[in-house]
Every structure is written in structure tokens, then in C-alpha cells.
Simulated scan of single mutants.
Amino acid sequence: MKQRTDFIAIGELAARTGVAVSAIRFYEAKGLLDALRTGGGQRRFLRADIRRVSFILIAQQMGLSLEEIAAELARLPAGRTPNAADWTRISTGLRARIDAQIAALTRTRGLLDQCIGCGCLSLKKCGLYNAQDKAAQRGAGPRYVLGDRAGDIAEVG
């Protein structure tokens, strides 16, 4: 059974993590934290929730949405905070997403001064890079920014 000293009030959790009490209530409402209630209805959190809130803050800074954070926390045994192995697993997935975003931004940067395959920059230039709207064969939107290359799009017969 947990000792009384294993629990902290919401104000102490807020003070220890630098997070507003309202944010802690919000995290609880989103299922990221579980509070126990005293006989008087006051919230009590495990001391380990200090690490859990820290994890939430770090994961948000790294680009995870609250839904993604909730899903990751739900994969853990009840009440356990993420450890180094958990973070390695999570950060590996995050790294793949960041790499994809970097690749998309790199493509966009390289195409800023060219036609991007959607006809929006210059009809005259698109006549050279996208004659007869070849990019449209791959679908709607800025095909070259989405990863299609001009040489990959077949000539219109």
C-alpha cells in the first residue's frame, strides 16, 4: 500500500514541474494523469507524476500531440512513468517523422525558385517545367513539393 508521503497535492505538482494547476487539471481531463481523491475531494498525485508531467512537456516540445502522448503513456503499465527504454522507442518513431518533414522542407526549399507543379507561380514557366500539365496525371496539388519529380511524370500523348 502506498504511504501518505508517496502522494502530493496538485499545488505541489504544479510547483515542482512549473506547470499551472489548470494545465495539470487539463492533462488529467485528457487522460494523461490520474489523480486520486481525498475524502474531501482534493486531488492527490503520485510523486512519480512529477516525471510524468516532465515527460509530457518534453514530448510536446519534441512535436508530439497530446493524443500521441496519451497513446504512448497508455502503452505503459498502469501508473508507470516512461523510462529510458520507453523514450528510445518513442524518439525513434519521432526521428522518422522529423526526417520526413526535413525531406519535404528540403524539396520545397529547392523548388522555391522553380515551378512547383501546380501552375500557381508562372504560366510561362510552367509551360517549360510542366508542359501540358503533366504533373496533374499524378493527382491534385503541388506534385513536385509532394515528392514527385518532373522526370517521373510521363509525357501526355
Rank of each mutant, 00 (worst) to 15 (best):
K2G: 05
Q3K: 13
R4T: 15
R4H: 13
R4M: 14
T5N: 12
D6N: 08
D6T: 05
D6I: 02
D6W: 04
I8M: 06
I8D: 02
A9P: 03
G11V: 00
E12V: 06
A15V: 08
R16C: 08
R16K: 11
T17P: 08
G18D: 06
V19F: 05
S22E: 13
S22Q: 12
A23I: 11
A23N: 13
Y27K: 01
Y27L: 00
E28D: 11
K30W: 05
K30S: 04
K30M: 10
G31M: 01
R37I: 01
T38W: 06
G39H: 04
G41D: 02
G41A: 04
G41E: 00
Q42A: 07
R43A: 01
R44W: 03
F45D: 00
L46P: 03
R47Q: 12
A48P: 06
A48L: 10
R52V: 05
S54R: 12
S54M: 13
I58C: 09
Q60L: 11
Q61H: 10
M62V: 09
L66V: 10
E67S: 07
E68G: 02
A71C: 05
E72M: 05
L73D: 00
L73F: 00
A74W: 02
R75I: 02
L76G: 02
L76P: 01
L76M: 03
A78Y: 10
A78P: 11
A78S: 12
G79A: 02
P82L: 04
A84M: 09
D86N: 02
W87Q: 09
R89P: 06
I90T: 05
T92K: 13
R95C: 09
R95H: 11
R95N: 09
A96G: 07
R97A: 04
I98F: 14
I98E: 08
D99W: 08
Q101M: 15
Q101I: 14
I102Y: 12
I102D: 14
A104D: 12
A104L: 14
T106Q: 15
R109L: 14
L111I: 06
D113K: 14
D113I: 10
C115T: 04
I116Y: 12
C118N: 07
C120Q: 13
S122C: 02
K124A: 13
K125W: 15
K125T: 13
G127T: 03
G127R: 07
N130K: 04
A131V: 14
Q132E: 15
K134H: 14
Q137R: 12
R138I: 08
G139D: 08
G141M: 08
V145I: 09
V145E: 03
L146Y: 09
D148R: 08
R149V: 12
A150L: 10
D152R: 10
I153F: 13
A154W: 14
E155C: 14
V156Q: 15
V156G: 15
G157H: 14
